[in-house]
């Protein structure tokens, strides 16, 4: 197995303060990695920097595309970065309104990335969109409804369809379950787990919920004050945490 992402000494500064720093890891094909930590620990900053949405101040992020070519994000031209973001990556946001076009139909939301890749056949686009709405349990009959008429859970599932439709190799997710009720969350997580499994896509997900990490992630990074304080297999981190902060996090879980 080969890595698809290599991260070395990555840092992002806000003025003279570090949002995240000294981050090193490799991600392999089909791996699901969760980044956990409390608010302000730098999780979302790290995610945005990995995805090239924020420019790194130190270190590097290299991505291997489907052809096997490596790209270092900081030296990448903007057009090339956009091409990768459209074809090889996905990004699921915590708030659906940041990740969806709320004014256009669900079908158009799903088709957008396909059209950006040059698909033009209207009937085919519609059929693919309908198929994906079924896959994410929204139902093809809602094809022409705008996401503004959807519930929060449906909006998040629509984001998944919109991102996975082009079969990306790496999807970034920023607290995708953050705004969902627990009952809605279970359905979303089960669906996500299944789709990730079937498609073999690699995922980097920010969450503050250790239960979500346990359910979905092979590996977990624990962040505190902008640094990764512990990294490893998810079940090892949760069952045998080493760092004082991780021990505190794990012992703070409320048992249902």
């Amino acid at each position: 197995m080969k890595p698809i992402l290599q991260v070395k000494q990555l840092a992002k500064r806000y003025g003279d303060r570090y949002g995240c720093r000294d981050v090193n890891f490799e991600l392999y094909e089909g791996e699901v990695l969760c980044i956990v930590g409390e608010s302000g620990s730098g999780k979302s900053t790290l995610l945005a920097t990995l995805a090239g949405r924020l420019a790194a101040d130190e270190g590097e992020v290299t991505f291997r595309d489907a052809n096997g070519d490596w790209h270092e994000l900081s030296t990448l031209a903007e057009a090339e970065r956009r091409r990768l973001a459209r074809t090889e990556w996905g990004f699921v946001t915590q708030h659906a309104r940041d990740g969806l076009r709320m004014g256009v139909s669900a079908g158009a939301n799903v088709s957008e990335r396909l059209m950006a890749l040059g698909h033009r056949h209207y009937g085919q686009l519609r059929a693919t969109a309908a198929e994906w709405l079924e896959k994410v349990e929204i139902g093809a009959e809602r094809l022409d409804d705008p996401p503004s008429r959807f519930s929060g859970g449906m909006q998040q599932r629509l984001q998944i369809a919109r991102n996975l439709v082009t079969r990306p190799r790496l999807v970034f997710m920023d607290e995708p379950t953050g705004g969902l009720d627990v009952s809605v969350q279970a359905r979303f997580l089960d669906l996500l787990r299944r789709l990730v499994h079937e498609s073999g896509v690699a995922v980097i997900m920010v969450t503050h919920d250790l239960g979500v990490a346990r359910l979905l992630a092979h590996r977990t990074l624990v962040m505190q004050q902008g640094r990764v304080v512990e990294a490893g297999l998810t079940d090892q981190i949760l069952d045998d945490p080493q760092h004082p902060y991780t021990q505190l996090l794990v012992s703070s879980i409320v048992q249902a």
């Binding site: 197995m1 791996e31 359905r187 997580l189 089960d190 359910l215 092979h218 590996r219 490893g232 297999l233």
Partner: peptide
């Protein structure tokens, strides 16, 4: 980690009685 995941997938099994229920599965 990815090697450990691979070893667990095809070589090393852990059998316990403690079921971690996955919602809806």
């Amino acid at each position: 980690p990815h090697e450990i995941v691979a070893v667990r997938r095809d070589t090393l099994g852990y059998v316990s009685q403690f079921l971690r229920v996955i919602p809806r599965v």
